[in-house]
Design a protein around this nucleic acid. Sequence first.
RNA 1: CGGGGAGUGGCGCAGCCUGGUAGCGCAUCUGUUUUGGGAACAGAGGGUCGCAGGUUCGAAUCCUGUCUCCCCGACCA
Length: 437
Amino acid sequence: MRLSRYFLPTLKENPAEAQIASHRLMLRAGMIRQGAAGIYSWLPLGLKVLKHIERIVREEQDRAGAQELLMPTIQSADLWVESGRYDDYGKEMLRIEDRHGRNMLYGPTNEEMITDIFRREVRSYRDLPKNLYHIQWKFRDEIRPRFGVMRGREFLMKDAYSFDLTAEDGRKSYNAMFVAYLRTFARLGLKAIPMRADTGPIGGDLSHEFIILADTGESEVFFHKDFDKIDPLADDVDFTGDLQPIVDRWTSIYAATEEMHDAENCPVESADLITGRGIEVGHIFFFGDKYSKPMGASVQGPEGESVNVQMGSYGIGVSRLVGGIIEASHDENGIIWPEAVAPFKVGLINLRAGDDACTKACDDLYAELEKAGIEVLYDDRDERAGAKFANMDLIGLPWQIAIGPRGLEKGVIELKNRATGERVEVSAADAIQKLSA
RNA sequence: CGGGGAGUGGCGCAGCCUGGUAGCGCAUCUGUUUUGGGAACAGAGGGUCGCAGGUUCGAAUCCUGUCUCCCCGACCA
């Protein structure tokens, strides 16, 4: 993509309304613009990142055996009356009335709707287990939205729902999501730690929060240093096999949020305890028949008896992750994207747009990079070098290539790593080879 | 919802106390000189001063109401 044609409205100064790093940087890098409190438009650069995260989340859900569907954003109030949550949910739920006076709502979550879909179609235990998910916009009318997309009112969430005949089987479904989450966050370039969680309004007796570490995170977390020793991506996971050992390995290491941590009775020696800050990006629950019972979601068991299915639900804050990743990965100059989610892999800078030889060298390399399937943002604008460098640092592409007359005389271009700041002079061919690896 | 703060060209702000018809920096457009880490000079365009009432000869400025946004607290992917 040529920057001269791209819609990328970057800001040199910090907008007054943004306080935290991710919010400031997302506005400055031209990723989002605010529509109303907690509601944002996603501009091209921001949308690209959102889609990349979505893709990784989807791939890991599919790998773990979940199946994607898509439910609407607007729901009928009827189902919520049935589950008893229409009154319980309170003002956080955005209630709407249609032209016929029917009570509707903008879905804050989808337990009721998925349970309804399930109960209409599934009759036999032979159809179990099932795990259905979608990636859809939600709305929760937060009392106080803040921190940009980290706590917006409208947000993109992946929510999966598992259905099993027995609690024991439900535990297996839970484990599959547990492991899928570990893999997902690791692929996003994040260090995520599962922590036993309060089950909150969704209810149930088994629940974990997945917290990513970021210095600017909103809550304090405590965990054993042994988490550094395990890599979720080290082994290939067989999701059809027994995942309990993997789950046990992770849950046996101490980790607690501020609320759950008791400094007096902490089982970890202080030398081994790491204190950090974190952001919740995922939450999984097993809640048995909490919804299947009141809503009559049952199947016929092997003995011909009617059994309420055992359910779990599993959320990942997809849009929140965009902010979360930035919180975990930025410096004073801007964003530092992990390669897996970067909007472009490399930024190509023409240091002297008015120079024919320089422009030709840039155009050629741009064409070759595109041909090699490498996503490149080519700054072909007639701007000064300094402005281009600053802009590239701000939007945080993992690699930068700078081409100028000075280097061309020597037959070299400059390749810079955004994360380390390391700069090397290489030939154009070497740069392509390095970026293709 | 309780407490605090702010709405003035696209962005960041000054002006308000002490009313006299709006200014600075950045950005934008034109031209010239420049060109390897947010250039210089010259010129230009762009503002219902959040909105609605009121006071006044006259309101960005004073009064009343209202809307919106931000920050702190309780809640959440």
